[in-house]
Design a protein around this nucleic acid. Structure first.
Length: 353
DNA sequence: AATGCGGGGCG
DNA sequence: CGCCCAGCATT
């Protein structure tokens, strides 16, 4: 990366931090390795405002790392109760005891030694090294990933190994351009910037100090980046719908139950299997189902599954007497369709006829 | 109701 | 490696 590219990121970010960053967080005064570590573990999956009172109670009861190591599991868990992700507290306690046994009662100032402690990964280790000692190690948390995706115009979900690897490379490039003595501020600046300026839903691009050089802003992709997590592969379901028309061109619609999919909407007679649909058809309708015309399959995605709906069209059906209008079923003219609540894909299908 | 979130642990 | 998980806040 060219030096000017990095400067256009690091320098304005540090300048922004001096004016708008958070300088009065409890773990910044004093900014000891133990307090930085504790805050970073608490800040995993948890926002600053939630963490602060827990942090204060924690350091009140366990002012130093050996104090924490000497505490009982029950004491530690009691101080964590309400924060969630209780494995964090278990790892914290175990790591504290190991630091007493192996590192003289304090956190090691060494990347690999930190990574060997339970609950500390690469990003948390970088946060500790940079904030506690001013060592030039980057972080890569959710905030940084979001800012990188936008500023560098990186496509692809940041959770994929390829994107994450690319972002660690960028993080390492940027951190080399941070002036000595400003590593702690740089780390805090990135977290503050992502949390208050380059937010997920409503980034303040109009006042952004990094607008110059932001690829997403230039290309109109701020809302599209970072690429969202790919939807878990949805279960696929199939169903057959019957599009029945009488001699007058009216359509047979059924009302859905008040709960579940398409609750209380009007839809075509539908079943998961052809045999099930045939059973209903032969009981209710006078006609030849095998004469039905297969229309193009409709693919509709719900929140929890994808439906492949095969419409079968059968015209000039003569309904048996019992297939008349009632609360759950009625023959509907084209003119009436507009006034009924229909699922979007069904309405689209009917409008296309 | 869905989404995001660092790291651990699994197969 | 890819995948799932944990608990809460936010949207």
């Amino acid at each position: 990366m060219a030096a000017d590219t990095a400067d256009r990121f690091v320098a304005p970010l540090l300048d922004w931090f001096d004016r708008h960053g958070r300088h009065d967080l409890p773990w910044q005064h004093p900014r000891t390795p133990y307090r930085v570590w504790l805050s970073e573990i608490m800040l995993q999956q948890t926002q600053v405002a939630t963490v602060i009172p827990y942090f204060l109670r924690f350091v009140e009861s366990f002012p130093t790392l050996p104090d924490l190591a000497a505490a009982s599991t029950d004491q530690v868990m009691a101080h964590w109760a309400g924060l969630g992700y209780y494995a964090r507290a278990r790892n914290l306690h175990a790591a504290a005891r190991r630091c007493v046994e192996q590192h003289g009662g304090d956190l090691p100032r060494d990347l690999d030694a930190l990574l060997a402690l339970p609950g500390i990964g690469r990003s948390t280790a970088g946060a500790i090294l940079s904030q506690a000692w001013g060592d030039p190690f980057p972080i890569l948390d959710g905030n940084v990933k979001r800012v990188f995706a936008r500023w560098h115009g990186i496509h692809g979900w940041p959770g994929t190994p390829a994107v994450e690897k690319q972002m660690w490379g960028l993080a390492n490039q940027h951190v080399r351009h941070v002036p000595a003595g400003r590593l702690a501020d740089y780390t805090q600046a990135q977290m503050d910037f992502g949390a208050t300026q380059c937010t997920r839903a409503a980034p303040a691009c109009l006042t952004c100090p990094l607008a110059d050089g932001c690829v997403a802003l230039r290309e109109g992709l701020v809302d599209a980046l970072p690429t969202p997590r790919p939807g878990k592969t949805l279960p696929e379901r199939e169903a057959i719908a019957l599009l029945l028309e009488d001699a007058g061109g009216r359509l047979l619609l059924q009302r859905r139950p008040p709960t579940g999919i398409w609750a209380s909407l009007w839809t075509l007679p539908q079943d998961e299997t052809e045999s099930g649909l045939r059973t209903w058809f032969e009981r209710e309708v006078d006609g030849d189902l095998d004469a039905a015309e297969a229309l193009p399959t409709i693919v509709h995605t719900f929140s929890h599954y994808r439906l492949h709906l095969q419409p079968l069209r059968l015209r000039k059906v003569a309904p048996r007497a019992r297939v008349g209008d009632n609360e759950a079923q009625r023959w509907v003219s084209r003119a009436e369709l507009a006034s009924l609540g229909l699922p979007a894909p069904i309405r689209k299908l009917l409008d296309s006829l």
